[in-house]
């Protein structure tokens, strides 16, 4: 198990290197001048050159990349052009905010997704199945920013139960939780739909297998068989959940913008519009890192749950 873990950790190095190269390249291929947001429109050519040299934009790309990579390895992702603050600090703060609603959204999505999936899988072809399938398709296909706005209209504007936007007063745990509910619920419909469809297919497949007949032949009741179905479905369902958490960590640009939630999506959005290259690069790299780590964790969990996956 330890050898397996070590090998998997080593495998992540080339992945991260590739990701950093791709995100560096993407950011630089995009047209536009990174200094446009900090320079006054009438800045002199001299001032432009000076700033360019200060940020290192005058160097060849390969030098820029290696320098950036070297600093990134030491935890320094540069300085945001727009705010002048450390990118690392900005990203870590944003990830913290996104993590909160992403985890909450994944938990909500996983709970309801599994519930719908199990009901649909168990009662295939019934009205319950059709309702559950309809809800899950709706979850995947509805535009989330639209759903966010609808929820704001209903729960904030009309009913006044929950705050519409922002992160709230963070000294009060209850207040900040109330602010998380709407964005998290909006975000949860994505994993909910995907988990529901996955679990439905899994349950249907498991129930059609011969060993379920074997379990009945042992005298197990439906409750006893349910335990087996859950354990058989768990590795795949958890893997899907982990991947969904990874996607959500990227923050939904649209959802975070609708709710003015200061997470990674919000930061990315601002970085793109302000052409804040260091911030953009840094955020993408950190998100990729999270995604890779999460994948690793999911794999470990699957290995622990499913004896058929070789541990060698």
């Amino acid at each position: 198990m330890l050898v397996y873990l070590a090998r998997r950790v080593v495998y992540t190095i080339p992945i991260l290197l590739g990701v950093s190269l791709v995100c560096f390249a993407l950011v630089h291929i995009a047209p536009g001048d990174p200094l446009v947001s900090v320079l006054p429109p009438d800045a002199s050519a001299e001032l432009q050159a000076q700033l360019r040299a200060l940020y290192g934009f005058d160097q060849p790309y390969i030098v820029q990349f290696l320098r950036w990579l070297g600093r990134a390895l030491q935890g320094d992702l540069g300085t945001s052009i727009a705010s002048g603050r450390s990118v690392t600090t900005e990203v870590v703060t944003a990830v913290g905010y996104t993590l909160r609603i992403a985890v909450l959204a994944t938990l909500i999505g996983f709970f309801f997704g599994s519930l719908f999936g199990f009901v649909a899988g168990y009662y295939r072809g019934s009205a319950m199945d059709r309702i559950a399938s309809f809800v899950s398709v709706l979850g995947v296909s509805v535009p989330h920013y639209w759903l966010g706005m609808v929820l704001v209209i209903i729960f904030a504007a009309i009913l006044g139960w929950l705050p519409p936007t922002g992160k709230g007063d963070e000294s009060s745990l209850w207040e900040s939780f109330r602010h998380m509910i709407l964005p998290a619920v909006t975000m949860s419909v994505i994993p909910m739909g995907i988990v529901a469809r996955t679990v439905r297919a899994l349950v249907a497949d498991i129930l059609s297998q011969e060993f379920v007949v074997g379990l009945r032949a042992k005298g197990l009741t439906d409750a006893g068989i349910f335990r087996h179905v859950v354990k058989n479905a768990a590795p795949t369902a958890l893997a899907v959940m982990g991947l969904q958490l990874g996607y959500l960590l990227g923050g939904s640009i649209l959802i975070e913008t609708v709710f003015s939630w200061p997470g990674t999506g919000f930061v990315l959005n601002n970085a793109i519009f302000q052409r804040d290259l260091p911030l953009l690069q840094g955020t993408i790299l950190v998100l990729a890192l999270f995604f890779v780590i999460l994948n690793l964790l999911v794999d470990m969990l699957q290995t622990a749950l499913d004896p058929r996956i070789q541990r060698s």
């Binding site: 297998q209 011969e210 060993f211 007949v213 074997g214 379990l215 009945r216 032949a217 042992k218 005298g219 087996h228 354990k231 058989n232 749950l305 499913d306 004896p307 058929r308």
Partner: peptide, 21 residues
């Protein structure tokens, strides 16, 4: 009744046993 009175041996035990237990 299934188990203590009558029980069954299946053709392909690999399919008839739960793979994760």
């Amino acid at each position: 009744y299934r188990g203590p009175i009558v029980s069954m041996i299946f053709q392909e035990p690999l399919l008839a046993l739960d793979p994760v237990y």
